[in-house]
Amino acid sequence: MEQIYELFNKIKDKQPLVHHITNSVTMNDCANAVLALGGRPVMADSPNEAAEMAAQSSSLVINIGTLAEETVELMLKAGKAANEKGIPVIFDPVGVGATQFRSQSAKTILANIDCSIICGNMSEIRALAGLPSSGQGVDSGDSMDGAEELAKELAGELKATIAITGAIDAVSDGERTVRIQNGHPMLASLTGTGCMTNSLIGVFAGTENKPFEAAAAGILAMGLAGEKAYRHLAANEGAGMFRVRLFDALSTLAVEDLKKGARING
């Protein structure tokens, strides 16, 4: 936790530039989430500039939510450019296992890019591990049973920090493993909270290249913001205002909120 506090306090000074190659559904929300936390977003997805932009960014977030063959090609270019510069790459394997195209695209990305952090739901991570998966489109259909063990095993195999999001999140780098119990069920009522979580991870990873701490910090920040957003809802307010409150919560999140509210267990 002390390292997470330290990372959080460095964000405003570093103002990390988080390059996204992400899906068109949640692009705007991801950009605003980065801004709310204190980072700077850029969404450069042209093959003419993706690699050049990645090379000058603080971190790179790759999200395969709205997938196309040309998108995979520019992800590979950007990812390789980031790897050459030692820039952390965060991979969000949205919907992996739902179709052969998504699964093969994810395999291609992992075979050609050294991803620092891979963050997805249980069905997505099971699919990456070659295990039976009950994912339904981009939604998880698998319980979180065995999440810590799976994250630890896959982290060792892929040499990356693995984060599995769910009711209780699991994060492992193969040696250290934590459970994070923050969040609120209303986060599932909005499109893109998983995508935004990866963007928040990108802010922390871009502030300092500590993948394990960054993954835990990004997930914790989203969980705490979700709790804070719900507390500030009026009796007649629902998902629409929850979305507004979520960005408010992210923009006002303070280290004191982390110290008071974090529920992380090793």
Rank of each mutant, 00 (worst) to 15 (best):
M1R: 14
Y5C: 11
K10D: 13
D13Q: 10
Q15W: 13
V18K: 07
I21M: 04
V25A: 03
D29E: 10
N32K: 04
V34Q: 06
V42D: 11
I64K: 09
L67V: 03
E70A: 15
T71S: 15
V72T: 01
M75R: 09
A78P: 07
A81R: 02
V96Q: 00
R102M: 09
T108I: 12
A111S: 09
N112C: 01
D114G: 09
C115H: 06
I118D: 04
L128G: 01
A129P: 01
A129K: 02
G130I: 12
S134Y: 11
S134G: 07
E148V: 12
G156S: 11
K159L: 10
I164R: 06
Q181R: 14
L187A: 00
L187G: 05
A188G: 13
T191H: 03
G192A: 01
N198Q: 12
S199C: 14
K210S: 14
P211G: 03
E213V: 07
A217W: 00
I219Q: 07
L220N: 09
R231K: 14
H232K: 15
A235E: 15
E237D: 06
V244G: 10
D248E: 06
D248K: 03
A249F: 03
L258M: 12
L258A: 08
K260M: 14
N265K: 14
